[in-house]
């Protein structure tokens, strides 16, 4: 984690109201992993007192740039869209804990709902670099919100679902999961809370439904991993990237918590944003 003076390199409206901005920040480009995020300061002029958290969408160490992907939802994000190449951007990052991919996983199933694509996008690149096969299930309200396949590597199997049936499967993206989960070694998801809750229910019943053995559980294999540890997350079938209103993004203000399965709130910015699905209490309604 560092405070960085980044510089806007490029800003593109890839979908109506959705932007991808490239920032020159070599420390982030080389030092961040899929699932981590940055906390971006917006202009002081409008009296905005909080930074805006964004998943690191892609990172390119060779050019020293990272990208963020966001939707304009208020004055902060609108301010960002008015930036021009060369403008300075104050960035705190990289923050949070990344996705944990088991070294033995060959096939990864990524599930993204809407802007949740920003949370798993960098994992696509990492997985392909490491020679894994990736299927990306993407859900959106309608065809006009579907993430362009041109922005994805060719190696990805990209499957789309739209709520109104205007493109791909008509219905929720979670309905596609049963067709692909048997093939997958691990799943990674980011999107609206109801989608993640549905996925966590699928993941919890996966072993019964499919009769799959849990990864990494050798006979008499020592102590069980500490819940929330990187090792425990690597062994979980489903990891989710959570979203929450955020204050400090370093774990100080306790604003961005989600309820943990043990009854203790977990900080999205510090213990997360990536969690193993079983670490969270999906019924708590937080």
């Amino acid at each position: 984690m560092r405070l960085l003076g980044a510089e806007l390199v490029e800003s593109r409206e890839i979908l109506p109201g959705q932007f991808i901005q490239a920032l020159h920040a070599p420390h982030l480009a080389t030092g961040s992993r899929a699932g981590q995020f940055v906390h971006v300061r917006t202009g002081d002029l409008s009296g905005l007192v909080l930074r805006r958290p964004f998943s690191i969408n892609t990172a390119d160490p060779s050019s020293g740039t990272v990208t963020v992907h966001f939707r304009t939802v208020g004055r902060g994000t609108e301010w960002l869209t008015r930036l021009r190449p060369g403008d300075p951007v104050d960035v705190l990052g990289p923050l949070g804990r990344p996705f944990e991919v088991d070294a033995r996983s060959r096939h990864l199933l990524l599930i993204a709902g809407g802007l949740g694509i920003a949370g798993v996008r960098m994992l696509v690149d990492e997985a392909i670099r490491d020679g894994r096969q990736v299927t990306l299930l993407f859900g959106a309200a309608s065809a006009r919100d579907v993430y362009p396949s041109s922005l994805l590597p060719d190696e990805v199997e990209y499957v789309v679902a739209t709520d109104d049936g205007s493109l791909g499967h008509g219905g929720y993206v979670t309905e596609l999961v049963p067709q692909y989960e048997a093939w997958a070694d691990q799943g990674f998801a980011c999107g609206p809370a109801p989608m993640l809750a549905a996925l966590s229910r699928l993941a919890a019943t996966r072993r019964q439904r499919l009769g799959v053995a849990k990864l990494g559980r050798k006979r008499g294999a020592g102590r069980p991993d500490q819940p929330g540890s990187a090792a425990a997350r690597r062994k979980a079938f489903l990891q989710v990237s959570m979203e929450q209103n955020m204050g400090c993004a370093v774990g100080a203000c306790l604003g961005c918590v989600v309820m943990g399965a043990s009854g203790t709130p977990l900080r999205v910015c510090r213990e997360g944003p990536v969690f193993a699905a079983e670490e969270l209490d999906w019924e708590a309604g937080w």
Binding site: G47, L48, V49, L50, G76, Q244, N245, M246, G247, C253, L254, G255, C256, V257, V258, G263, T264, P265, G285, W286
Partner: peptide, 23 residues
């Protein structure tokens, strides 16, 4: 203390509103 239910923070004009609940 586990604190209050979320959302716990939001930005407001010239400031913010928090309700952590002494977690």
């Amino acid at each position: 203390r586990i604190g209050n239910v979320t959302p716990r923070v939001t930005e407001t004009p010239g400031g913010m509103l928090n309700s952590i609940g002494l977690q």
